[in-house]
Computed example of a mutant assay.
Amino acid sequence: MSGYFSDLITGSKSLLSGLGVTFKAMVSPVVTVQYPREKIDVTPAIRGHIDLVKDEGTGAHRCIVCLSCMKICPCQCITVEGEKQEGVKGKVLTLFTLDFTKCSLCGLCVESCRPRAIDFCSEYELAGFSREEFFYDLLKRVKERA
């Protein structure tokens, strides 16, 4: 008989504890964000896809076509091409593409870039209906921002 009452008291304590948690959640402020209508502030350390960094002085990119990002990429999702042009010291970047369907966001390309020409982008709303929407021409994106 004493086991019955101890179980009853333990169950009542458990019920009141659960009701206390529920009541506390009811009176606390709402933290849910209605996503499509309300946007949240993302942290500056977000790691989206890579993007070419625009040079502050010239407004162009910083890439010197050293190919270190393409060589170190384990997924082989970066394609970089450059050519030697008349009257220009070094190579000139002609193609810089990213196949985001293969990218694992490991960050090795960003770490290996000596002139700090690539960095992570802060875009997080990446959605598409076809595979071609995830092939980014990063050189074109830099020119559009300039």
Score class of each variant (00 low, 15 high):
32 T>K: 11
63 C>E: 00
78 I>N: 02
38 E>P: 00
107 G>Y: 02
45 A>Q: 11
122 S>I: 03
99 D>W: 08
110 V>S: 06
84 K>A: 12
36 P>T: 12
63 C>W: 04
71 K>M: 10
136 Y>W: 14
121 C>N: 15
29 P>E: 13
71 K>R: 07
95 L>D: 07
59 G>R: 07
101 T>S: 13
72 I>W: 01
12 S>W: 07
22 T>Y: 12
41 D>K: 14
127 A>K: 08
143 K>R: 09
53 V>D: 05
69 C>F: 01
96 F>P: 06
134 F>Y: 15
38 E>A: 08
74 P>G: 05
61 H>K: 02
116 R>Q: 14
101 T>R: 10
63 C>Q: 08
99 D>R: 05
22 T>P: 01
17 S>F: 10
119 D>C: 10
102 K>N: 07
34 Q>S: 12
34 Q>C: 02
133 E>L: 06
119 D>E: 13
139 L>A: 09
45 A>P: 00
91 K>I: 01
11 G>W: 05
58 T>C: 08
22 T>L: 15
31 V>G: 12
10 T>V: 11
127 A>N: 12
33 V>N: 07
105 L>V: 04
43 T>M: 09
82 G>D: 02
4 Y>C: 06
89 K>W: 03
85 Q>S: 10
78 I>D: 02
30 V>S: 12
89 K>H: 01
113 C>L: 07
87 G>M: 05
127 A>W: 12
133 E>K: 09
65 V>C: 08
53 V>E: 04
68 S>P: 00
42 V>L: 15
120 F>S: 00
1 M>I: 09
51 D>E: 15
30 V>N: 14
72 I>L: 03
90 G>S: 07
73 C>M: 04
122 S>W: 05
121 C>G: 06
137 D>M: 08
46 I>P: 00
40 I>Y: 11
104 S>N: 09
56 E>A: 15
63 C>V: 02
56 E>F: 08
